[in-house]
Design a protein around this nucleic acid. Sequence first.
DNA 1: ACGGGCAGACTAACCAGTCGGTATGTCGCC
DNA 2: GGCGACATACCGACTGGTTAGTCTGCCCGT
Lengths: 207, 207
Amino acid sequence: MTRAGTVRTGHGGTGTEAPEPVPQRLMAAATRLFAEQGYDRTSVQEIVEAAGVTKGALYHYFGSKDDLLHEIYGRLLRLQQERLDLLAGSEAPVEQRLRDVAADVVVTTIDNLDDAMIFFRSMHQLSPEKQKQVRAERRRYHERFRALVEEGQHSGVFSDATPADLVVDYHFGSVHHLSSWYSAGGHLTPQQVAEHLADLLLRALRP
Amino acid sequence: MTRAGTVRTGHGGTGTEAPEPVPQRLMAAATRLFAEQGYDRTSVQEIVEAAGVTKGALYHYFGSKDDLLHEIYGRLLRLQQERLDLLAGSEAPVEQRLRDVAADVVVTTIDNLDDAMIFFRSMHQLSPEKQKQVRAERRRYHERFRALVEEGQHSGVFSDATPADLVVDYHFGSVHHLSSWYSAGGHLTPQQVAEHLADLLLRALRP
DNA sequence: ACGGGCAGACTAACCAGTCGGTATGTCGCC
DNA sequence: GGCGACATACCGACTGGTTAGTCTGCCCGT
């Protein structure tokens, strides 16, 4: 199911403002509510009210409540994969590439804190098959990241005292955790936090 | 509410085995089910069936389903606070104390993976007041840990390039994340993982 | 006059928590 | 050494409320 494509943010003709199309409104409302109250505590009724439509509209575009959640996962995964491919493929030396990638995932996570919160908190509410799919995409991301660490370890610019897998999980753990504390103390900008966290990672990897 | 004390694991008299008392059985069943399916997806009926009793028993010992969750939080918080106090108060040099503490939290987290999973995933299902209480206890733990980092930074054995708060969140992030991946690849013992993660922390703090 | 886009009443299933009731035990008292 | 009074531990049917998803049909552009 799940089409929800056809974005068309406007269409000449009348001069009136084009309000965001219904599928996007539904996604936005769902994202906010899921992040605020959790998936199970958010009723379909609440979502459609927040989006200013009714159930008929939601089930016209999405196959199920679960499908809506899956779509949110897809959006974040696509974004992150794209950024990783972009940065990891540059010509810079490996320590620079790793630093860029490590910092970027922090910034984009903070920029999409709601998505990130939902990601880590609601994974197990997805149907088993969708969960498998998400996990597979996640693993691809993980492996791409790990390859960077291994490259640096083999060429000697990083210490190989710790298995690369563990290093990656260590860093992702902190990224995951961001949604629990960022903006609480919040006197640091996303970029500052990203630089600090990337710095910690690189310092830990010094030979 | 919530008494659930009086453990009495046995009592002479008949030679029959003493089965675990009902409150413990309920806690154990709830812990397993919450970790497996999440809090909201686990019905009270399932819990009492898994524990071999009925709702009457549950509501005799616990004030609400939420109360049961709170009790699980309390158990883990007490354990962790106790271990931290023990290790952080030793006479060893600060880098040794931080290493011990950082490694220990990893081991006890792995030893109680279900509790840890519930902890980070179900915080927001607690009633607001209980949530506040848990957060307060959590903050105490966090501050005790941070004090260690700051001590080392002031005395010059740790780099102070990164704010101590961030360092602590960085480490706890990875601990939090453990329940997502540990035992998946699982060829490392809890101690080995703990040593690696503590090592990463200490290496990141080298001046 | 046809089909996509949507409304909103409806249903079938569930679920947390309640409550009256029963079994077992214990303590004081004669 | 038996008896009433009270308490603890637990049972299980019941209630009031909520929920995801369905279905029929209206509206409107083409």
